[in-house]
Write a protein that binds this DNA or RNA. Sequence first.
DNA 1: CGGTCAGTTGAGAACTTTCAACATGGGTGG
DNA 2: CCACCCATGTTGAAAGTTCTCAACTGACCG
Lengths: 252, 252
Amino acid sequence: MQLYLIRKLECFAKLSMADKQALQVLGEKPRRCAARQDIIREGDDPQFVNLILDGWACRYKQLEDGRRQIISFFLPGDLCDTHIYVLRQMDHSIATLTPVTLASISRSVLDDITARHPRITQALWWDTLVTAAIQREWTVNLGQRPATERLGHLLCEIFLRLRSVGLTDGASCSFPLTQGELGDAMGLTSVHINRTLQELRSTGLIILEGRRLTIPDLAALQQASLFNPNYLHLDHVGSHLDANGSDEPLDL
Amino acid sequence: MQLYLIRKLECFAKLSMADKQALQVLGEKPRRCAARQDIIREGDDPQFVNLILDGWACRYKQLEDGRRQIISFFLPGDLCDTHIYVLRQMDHSIATLTPVTLASISRSVLDDITARHPRITQALWWDTLVTAAIQREWTVNLGQRPATERLGHLLCEIFLRLRSVGLTDGASCSFPLTQGELGDAMGLTSVHINRTLQELRSTGLIILEGRRLTIPDLAALQQASLFNPNYLHLDHVGSHLDANGSDEPLDL
DNA sequence: CGGTCAGTTGAGAACTTTCAACATGGGTGG
DNA sequence: CCACCCATGTTGAAAGTTCTCAACTGACCG
């Protein structure tokens, strides 16, 4: 099984074969979940760190009166909070969006790997910091941007994140989100998402049909959405901490 | 100098005298900054972890066209991103709001302390996770809540955070934010903040005058704002990892 | 074939912004 | 000591954005 996590971490650090083998172990006991299922719920006691091996998931929080906010998306290779077991109970829920393959990693396995592989420890810190940076960017997105920019910004982010783990095909990528889910993520109604998507489509900035997204001119969409990729920290591919081997750089 | 950080971490772990002394060292070379000054700017190379010893600060991000979003508030005892030096450049800026006393902590000092004090390491993880949880809650706040709830929610959060470091006086606390700053944080205009504050005042939920906030009935404000304090993870005061001593529990 | 879910459309209502004017208070320079 | 200035707070009215409600379409599934 291909571990997208490895590809992602290699955006930051050049991993040795031993590092990669250690990470490979994380994907060994995959669990399968159907689409739209809770993986863990608000109030649960978190015992494991979940790793999304494949598929899309999300964090969300449901208010008493039914409103739901999707707080972040998990794409293949994403880890749900290293060290989450420090907390007594989850303050949000995590659910699948598509069918998902995931690994539940125990504290001892993770402690063991980080104790032996300082480069991995460092790379996981990078991942943690990038995750935090994404959450901050969502704050900016929800607070300052009108619907069109906001949605365009999200599409840029998802596209670049998928590209960093090799899940894009030229200017296209899989895009399984419904308009309702997009609405819950962007703090907009699905009706308004619909109209906003139409606007993005009519200006030729995106092609979205049949669960597939194409961004004909990424630079144009970025510009229209005031998207600055700096917060993804993909700019210094493998230039820290090299161990061996080489990769083709990702151009942003 | 009283280190609010110690008080905060004691919400999670009972620290030994040795732990506290180690933390005390962090406050030894304080730096003073005037109000409304950048501490570090987007694009800078982060060398130090900043610790707010006293005063209020914020993260913010400025868009090309001048719009500004305040992404989070730093209150006394708050750390600005442990391990931030893993990243090459800041993706946001940090600025003071009031005059601030801060300590810039080098990587080596922090590494040294965490190597020797596992309880501190654990407590810093707790702090990191709570910071992330707060950012997620802001996502919910900006995405789902109308102005009155949104502002009420922020006031509850700030009040509880100040209380956890002993900076409240009964039902009151210092509250130096201008309406413009509140607007930048909540994604609302200062005009609308003004009207929303009037509404909160007229219903008796808050008293806000002369840079001082009083919440006569915290439970009522929490209820009106659909505020659930679980994300602050203050609920198990000192019950993990005890070393010695005891504290009065904080009632939430 | 009926049912359900996702997507689409229209029109009015609600919330928030914009713009512009005015009030207040503290601080500064004359 | 007073006059002035500037930042902050306040108010009104119109404009703009987004939501709500409600109806309708198309695709897929059993």
